[in-house]
């Protein structure tokens, strides 16, 4: 894990988490986002039924895909932490959960807007929507557990256990919600991506969206894990450093005043 959170050493004067790698990645992300905007808003055709509203898909689908990816990374990293006891894995899990939670929130907001346009309502008590909402709350809980305090090792172990419990919980929630809805099927719920024979250009735009958001995710993750490593280091060393500098000040009196 030394490659992922390579924080600058205290001695180095360079402040920031950027390296050549992240800058290249960031540039690629911007380029692909521009590409996505061009394809999503420009080149791809409007839908037969949904007209222009279909363009929301190019954000909606990639964001939930990133959220799922992020939570899988959280779970895997949590498992690795419990085996390896290396804080790098814990920071990876935490950073991924943070990014994932933001992306689930984005998906829910964008999805609600899309729902208003195509279904006429912001929210349907559909199995997938309900599960996603509970997923969001579950990971907000996970992030709250990370903030409980204590040493880094305590935080890491607690959150790794909760991160793995969430993996146990998600299928149960999904199963129960599906069973709940299938018994109470009222109106026909439009499936958001039920278009099986999707237009080629639309599929390509969606693909561009997934690529762009995946690059964005990796870029965010690199920076976030490095910031977390720095935070941890600051907590560990911050007081010592402050005391040392204060003592240095006290050791050379009157040098500033005169």
């Amino acid at each position: 894990m030394t490659t992922i959170d390579k924080a600058p050493t205290v001695q180095s004067q360079r402040a920031g988490t950027g390296t050549r790698g992240t800058r290249i990645l960031g540039t690629l992300t911007i380029v692909s986002m521009v590409w996505l905007i061009a394809f999503g808003l420009g080149f791809s055709p409007a839908d037969r039924d949904q007209q222009e509203a279909v363009r929301i898909m190019y954000v909606h689908v990639p964001t939930i895909w990133i959220a799922y990816l992020a939570f899988v990374v959280t779970a895997v990293a949590s498992g690795f932490y419990l085996f390896k006891k290396s804080l790098g894995w814990d920071r990876l899990a935490g950073a991924s959960a943070e990014v994932g939670t933001v992306f689930v929130a984005l998906t829910l907001i964008v999805g609600a807007l899309w729902g208003r346009l195509t279904w006429g309502v912001f929210w349907q008590w559909d199995a997938r929507l309900t599960t996603t909402a509970l997923l969001f709350v579950t990971y907000v809980g996970y992030l709250a557990v990370r903030r409980l305090g204590g040493t880094h090792e305590q935080r890491a172990r607690r959150s790794a256990v909760i991160g793995l419990l969430a993996v146990l919980l998600i299928p149960l929630v999904h199963w129960s919600v599906r069973l709940w809805r299938s018994l109470h099927q009222e109106a026909t719920v439009l499936d958001p991506d039920g278009d099986i024979d999707m237009d080629g250009l639309m599929l390509f735009s969606l693909f561009v969206g997934v690529i762009a958001f995946t690059l964005f995710y990796v870029w965010l993750m690199l920076h976030r894990t490095r910031v977390m490593a720095m935070e941890d280091m600051m907590e560990d060393r911050g007081l010592d450093e402050a005391l040392a500098s204060r003592r240095r000040e006290a050791a050379m009196p009157d040098s500033e005043e005169n």
Binding site: A144, S176, L179
Partner: peptide, 13 residues
């Protein structure tokens, strides 16, 4: 925050 999403399946079932 931790308990309520976790017991949602119990409430439904």
């Amino acid at each position: 925050l931790l308990t309520l999403p976790a017991v949602a399946p119990v409430l439904i079932g």
